[in-house]
Design a protein around this nucleic acid. Sequence first.
DNA 1: CTGAAAGCGCTTACAG
DNA 2: CTGAAAGCGCTTACAG
Lengths: 329, 329
Amino acid sequence: MAGVSVATVSRALRGLDRVSPQTRQRVLEVAEELHYVASPTATSLVSGRTRVVAVVAPFLSRWYFATLVSAIEKELRAHDHHAILFDLEDDTYSSRLPLTQNMLWKRVDGVITLDVAMTPDEVALVDRLGLPLVAIGAPVPGRTCVRIDDHATMRTAVEHLIGLGHELIGYIGDVPEDVAHIRAPRDRLDAFVETMRAAGLDVVEEWVLGSDWTAQSAATGSTAVLSGEPRPTAVVAASDEMAIGVRETARRLGLRVPEDLSIIGIDDFVLSDVLGLSTVRQDVAAQGRTAASLVLGALGSGEPPETDDVVMPTRLVVRESTGPAPGVS
Amino acid sequence: MAGVSVATVSRALRGLDRVSPQTRQRVLEVAEELHYVASPTATSLVSGRTRVVAVVAPFLSRWYFATLVSAIEKELRAHDHHAILFDLEDDTYSSRLPLTQNMLWKRVDGVITLDVAMTPDEVALVDRLGLPLVAIGAPVPGRTCVRIDDHATMRTAVEHLIGLGHELIGYIGDVPEDVAHIRAPRDRLDAFVETMRAAGLDVVEEWVLGSDWTAQSAATGSTAVLSGEPRPTAVVAASDEMAIGVRETARRLGLRVPEDLSIIGIDDFVLSDVLGLSTVRQDVAAQGRTAASLVLGALGSGEPPETDDVVMPTRLVVRESTGPAPGVS
DNA sequence: CTGAAAGCGCTTACAG
DNA sequence: CTGAAAGCGCTTACAG
């Protein structure tokens, strides 16, 4: 319609040089009029690039993951890429769906994993396909990981309580061995234990509680300990959502927070601020953006992302749920 | 490698007939060995189908949207389709990014909108591209919408409070005119007003509060009303997240829930159960699945989805945040 | 039952 | 500066 060849149209539309201004102008006008947009599938077939990045997560509906996905999608789109989603949630909490070749092959240019512990087979698959991969949260062997320092973060939380005079401190967020695919909260539990010991405090085994990391399970799981005698004067939860569950149990049992029980979590969940929950804040969206730029960088340069982990800072946010231990002024 | 033509490979792998069992067997084995998977971009180019559905949302990180996305992704993947995400969130709450042709053209086979009020231009675009579209929440003119009956849902909530003897009832969840793109919560507010009037109760204008539908804004926004005199004995929130904000403000002001103040929301948000919040429950995941099957059905049949709305049921869930009005036994 | 050829809609050397 | 031709990796009639 513009009276030129398809090759010229291609060059004009993509802004390559070696096209006369008049021709370009004409092509642009006709394209506009016809609502012409080049077919991305045809473009992909010749370029070998899809401009799509796979975002792989064990859950999608939980706050942490949804926040990551949102941040990643925006960063990608700002650079003319798209996010395709893979929710690996399975019927049972202790297993997840595998990542397969036909999710990735010729479908995406790169992969971002959200706190998923990849199996060796999966890592081999991604390697074989030559896809750049950046992990968030749970590291993937040999790949760059954007994460927080779980150990230091937990230490900050525990030391805050110790600084307030607490000596009887419970913990919630232990996870059974078999759910290794979700996250390795070992670091957090280890840090709890170490920090307690370093301060000369006992870790009471019955006060270290398991949970599937939901508020619900934390509420149920903490009932026995909080209604027992003796009971902890403070609880540290490995996530804010669990902290909220514990806080609710405390309320039900008639324990005042923080007078009778101090509670601190990790994350700075959406509701933590309104609820006045003390926490150690991590910037989840920033982790998503960083991971997205790293894969974008790898796609641009052809080099895999630098292999060093990117460790993002966390910081203590003291709100109303923590206070001096009973008897300490 | 299997000693046959590419045409035969194509037929064998896709399970078409007119291939001898031996040949098929051989092709399958070699494919397995080579980790061969057909390139989806090449397949798309000839079929004109991408097996990808666009999921368009005004936010991604909020619970309602994340839950929908998760459900949609699973339903799509169960039928060998994929979800590509478009988060239309803009810098300001009262605007959003537009849907453009290059998000959709030859990139997706269908569209699911999550509570986005499409502009006429956007509807025209989707029409021009011939894409089946199913809306969730906010309807799109002329297209099937999966939703709840906002009016009846709100009526259920208000009548629950009235049944408990409440007469002084506040409302939170009004939205300024200019944020029309997010949701039309008009129905809910209208239903509130109508139900109150039908029961012969006054709607106190100062008790109808605006909010951006976050817990935070509800907590802040309800402070004045709850500390005023007279004050409502019950508040109905257009969403559970706002109800949680109100509940927190009540707690801070020393009002007991439900003795001094009853609170009910709508949704049955993840935390509502743990927090003991009365609500009118909607099944968000089911709406996502339904919308996904509708577009899948349209893609399979070539027919656009039936144009009647699918109205999903909601039901009252009474928990601890609502009780008899003060002075009523 | 199987293969050769055309074509899906682009981009990229290669000529001119 | 512009066009004709080849090719990306498949699928689909059409022969045989």
